[in-house]
């Protein structure tokens, strides 16, 4: 019998790929919201990246609030309490975005459903500008990180949670959790739109708004719900990203937005499966570009997109306009 080493030391290639899947999970949570909002409301929300940015900034504030009040992780119990606090902080950051997104939909986006696309785009672009500056007014224009624990970042404090025994290799625990949350979100959304009553109501409204209204669905409520749901997941991914050592900047929303476009174009607009596959692909390509040839960092995902468009103009899971 061959004796396998207990912990595999991952090579560079595997680390880049894992980083890519991590980024892909984050991207999926943003892009899925964008794609669902587009599928149901018919509005391409240019301000969606800012929800992600707000989530990240909210986490820095809330996590700092917890970190200075909770004992630093030293033994298993205190680590568990610390981790629970961070999870609560992430959920709280995302939850704050539900009323924000809902209010935005109900006040400014609702009146423009019947207007031409250029006004819809212009309006969400205006929201983008307003939200970017709101972030700058609240948190300043410098990059922000959550307060350090015992001189180390949150993710480092959490990375003491052992991963080797579970998976047999050494990699950041926080990122592994994020990947699992990304996959979990994907499965949840599939289940939600396929099996639950609310999910089916949303799909019905997306397909035929008038018929849905006729059988007693409030389309206004559905639209607000969908927009708030998208805001929640964008904020959630921003918060998770912020936990993983990446400082929050006012510009992060723009980059995320543009990469989400690439993701949904690759996957096919309106398709949740497509945006998952697209997000993982873009994440991996992006990470490899950062590691191997940094100048191509932003260009590589676009090259991938053009490649996909040449082969399949309607995207990998070409739904283009309907949720599936």
């Amino acid at each position: 019998m061959i004796e396998l080493p207990l912990f595999i030391d991952l090579g560079d290639a595997a680390v880049h790929t894992l980083n890519g899947i991590f980024r892909g999970s984050i991207l999926f949570m943003i892009a899925s919201g964008l794609t669902i909002i587009f599928g149901v409301l018919g509005v391409l929300n240019l301000a969606h990246g800012e929800f992600y940015g707000i989530g990240a900034f909210l986490l820095t504030s809330i996590a700092t609030f917890f970190v200075v009040r909770i004992a630093a992780p030293t033994d298993p119990l205190s680590t568990a309490i610390f981790a629970a606090a961070i999870v609560i902080a992430v959920l709280l950051s995302a939850a704050i975005l539900i009323p924000i997104a809902g209010a935005i939909e109900a006040t400014v986006i609702r009146p423009i459903y019947d207007r031409a696309e250029m006004y819809q785009l212009l309006l969400t672009y205006a929201l983008l500008l307003i939200l970017v500056d709101t972030i700058r007014i609240i948190w300043g224009s410098q990059p922000v990180r959550p307060a350090a624990v015992d001189g180390q970042q949150i993710h480092a404090a959490l990375d003491v949670i052992p991963m080797e025994e579970l998976f047999g290799f050494q990699y950041s625990s926080v990122r592994i959790f994020t990947i699992f949350i990304g996959i979990g979100t994907f499965l949840f959304l599939l289940w939600f739109f396929d099996r639950t009553k609310t999910g089916r109501i949303i799909r019905a409204t997306a397909i035929d708004r008038e018929a849905a209204t006729a059988i007693g669905v409030s389309s206004d409520r559905v639209f607000t719900l969908v927009f708030a749901l998208g805001g929640f997941f964008a904020g959630f991914s921003g918060a998770l990203y912020s936990v993983s050592a990446i400082p929050a900047t006012a510009e992060m929303g723009g980059t995320a937005l543009v990469l989400s476009f690439v993701v949904i174009v690759i996957g096919g607009l309106g398709s949740i499966r497509g945006s998952f596959v697209g997000a993982i692909l873009v994440g991996v390509v992006w990470s490899w570009a950062i590691a191997e040839y940094p100048p191509a960092e932003i260009a590589a995902p676009f090259a991938l997109m053009i490649l996909v468009l040449l082969v399949r103009p309607e995207g990998l899971y070409g739904a283009w306009g309907e949720i599936e």
């Binding site: 690439v262 191509a296 932003i298 260009a299 676009f302 090259a303 997109m305």
Partner: peptide
């Protein structure tokens, strides 16, 4: 419609990416 806007935006960003990366 929206696909046109999305693609033109993506191409614009591609050029930006090339200019800022090269």
């Amino acid at each position: 419609a929206i696909y046109f806007a999305l693609l033109t935006l993506a191409f614009g960003q591609l050029l930006y990416a090339i200019a800022i990366g090269s």
